[in-house]
Amino acid sequence: MTADRLLRAGAGLKPEHQRHILEARPDVGWFEVHAENYMGAGGPPHHFLERVRALYPLSVHGVGLSIGSANGMAPGHLGRLKSVVDRYQPFIVSEHLAWSTHEGTFLNDLLPLPYTEATLSLVARHVDEAQTVLGSRILIENPSTYLRFDGEEMPETDFLRALARRSGCGLLLDVNNVVVSAANHGFDPRAYLDCFPHEHVGEIHLAGHAVLESDGDALYVDTHDRTISTEVWSLFRDVIARRGVSPTLIEWDSDVPAWLDLEAEVHQAQSILQTAGGLDARAA
């Protein structure tokens, strides 16, 4: 059952849905949670997650480690992440190519990094430290970004390839983030995906984004608050057809819809996984 389920589509676990999920036990492959929401001592968060975990495989997605902080990752946070991982035994642990903590202050966003050799050695060192403490490989997600820096030395895809080779980490390919960044920086998302090191991908994320227009210019914002765009679905279909299947997550974090609407997107992703090679992979 594990191999079967793990190549399937899953959903982000939201408090709005957890009671329904425990009662109805919907036919989805797995659930993902943000690690930081389960770092309290007890209460309803752990109560419900334990029960969901007893029924489904779980992926733990960290959003606060600050792997790209020049002054070190968030103090004490790796230990907290390890406690969540040890307790819930996820089949995937992932984090972001980003930073969020500076001099002990937590800026609640995934902030961008300049892609330079120096950033690469820093991030590779932190990923290595994280994998050593957690005792397992982690996946690093390509970010959605709104600006680029002066003096960058390599494209994001080269950075991620080098990071995976150097640290042994896997990658989490967020197709929506590719679309958001491509629109914001004027590159072709298909060209990006052609250069992406798919051999390291262990999970795919899909989500909705907003388009903010002002003064004739548009910025795409990674909002996770609506249905997945046609463009993201189409790129996802291509990636699966050409590069094979990976466990795929539907992320929906604000303006959370009724469970059935979220489940419909999970099933849509599932059918793409199955028609485009998922059946072969599952039979193998």
Partner: peptide, 10 residues
């Protein structure tokens, strides 16, 4: 519930 998220605000 905890409010840690990896989404931007709309």
């Amino acid at each position: 519930a905890g409010k840690n998220d990896c989404a931007a605000t709309g």
